[in-house]
């Protein structure tokens, strides 16, 4: 045992030695840097690697994308593209009425905007309700609770393309659902070629794919609520509905707000599973903004990267607003927590 420890110590010392040498080497320059720039300079020094990565992989692409949105043509390099100022934005925003996509110059974009708006509204509402109900059930002492938690979380682990393909096999004309319906004497339904059903399928599949993640967040929130509050309510003879509205919901509100904002951001970005499931059809019924950007920028027979970039900047602006709301809510929660 003693010998083992001794060997371990030797290995540890051998491994630590280079770190020590490195520390000795950089100690003097760091001290000099601190003396010259103060504590703020040290913070900047240690933040620099992260800021560099952020700058290269987030900020620079964003700036380049913005410049793309002010150009036209199919050329790839910015230098080869024609500067058109805000023409791409004007084209996107040129509408008789924003409520009527057919009155817009770029009607497909506005179809996508309308579809995305309704998708976000309905999907997020349904997602929160379903996740909430599931979390409440999984928080109870039910048989096989761990198993059910795994079952509901499993779709989160699947690739969106796999999710789309699985549901396509279920919902297509000769898919599983119609085959079962036929067995029971029902007429097959056009799940993916009828505008209403295709949109409903997009929402349902998306909720199925993502609810596990949000259920987990809500479940964590539920388990953080002190049990004695429920015991007190039970002793007072409070009805379950009242317990939910007066205890569970208020105390779960911080988690619910996080879920709401994250779900909103994810819903605005919806693309892969719906693209595989419906291809954006029937017509443009399930064409969402991200697919529009992809089609215009990459997939159409004649690409228009400038228009796609402008659409992505507008979409980015919406996401920034949502993120700011999330940050604001987070800060408010922190302040409230600090006061309490």
């Amino acid at each position: 045992m003693t010998e083992r420890l001794s060997t371990g110590s030797k290995v540890g010392a051998a491994l630590a030695a280079p770190v020590g040498w490195l520390a000795t080497i950089i100690d003097a320059p760091l001290k000099l840097w601190q003396r010259l720039t103060g504590l703020g300079g040290m913070a900047a020094f240690f933040l620099a690697p992260n800021m560099l990565i952020f700058g290269v992989f987030v900020l620079a692409p964003f700036v380049i994308n913005f410049f793309y949105s002010t150009t036209s043509g199919a050329a790839f390099f910015l230098a080869d593209r024609t500067y058109v100022g805000a023409a791409q934005y004007s084209r996107l925003l040129d509408c008789g009425s924003y409520l009527d996509p057919s009155s817009c110059r770029e009607d497909l974009f506005w179809n996508a905007v309308h579809n995305t708006f309704w998708f976000v509204t309905l999907q997020v509402a349904l997602l929160i309700v379903v996740s909430m109900i599931t979390a409440l059930i999984l928080n109870r002492e039910i048989v096989g609770r761990s198993f059910w938690r795994a079952v509901f979380f499993f779709p989160v682990l699947l690739s969106p393309v796999v999710v789309g393909l699985i549901w396509k096999w279920i919902l297509q004309r000769q898919g599983l659902l119609n085959s079962v319906a036929l067995q029971f004497g029902f007429e097959p339904t056009e799940w993916l070629t009828d505008r209403f059903w295709a949109f409903a399928a997009s929402i349902t599949v998306s909720v199925w794919a993502h609810m596990g993640f949000f259920t987990l967040i809500l479940l964590a929130g539920l388990q953080a609520i002190p049990r004695d509050l429920y015991e007190a309510a039970e002793m007072d003879g409070t009805k379950p509905g009242r317990v939910f509205w007066r205890i569970t919901l208020p105390l779960l509100m911080p988690n619910l707000l996080v879920v709401l904002i994250l779900a909103l951001i994810r819903a605005v970005q919806i693309f892969d599973e719906v693209y595989v499931l419906t291809g954006g059809g029937p017509g443009t019924s399930t064409l969402f903004i991200t697919q529009y950007i992809y089609e215009v920028g990459f997939a159409s027979l004649l690409r228009n990267p400038g228009l796609a970039a402008a659409a992505s900047i507008l979409m980015g602006a919406v996401l920034v607003v949502l993120t700011l709301i999330q940050l604001q809510i987070g800060r408010r929660g922190e302040k409230k927590g600090a006061r309490e």
């Binding site: 291809g279 954006g280 059809g281 017509g283 443009t284 064409l287 089609e295």
Partner: peptide
């Protein structure tokens, strides 16, 4: 056959 043409958006080939 409806689905070949209808169940996609844009100029996607099917």
């Amino acid at each position: 056959l409806k689905e070949t043409w209808v169940a996609a958006a844009g100029s996607t080939y099917r």
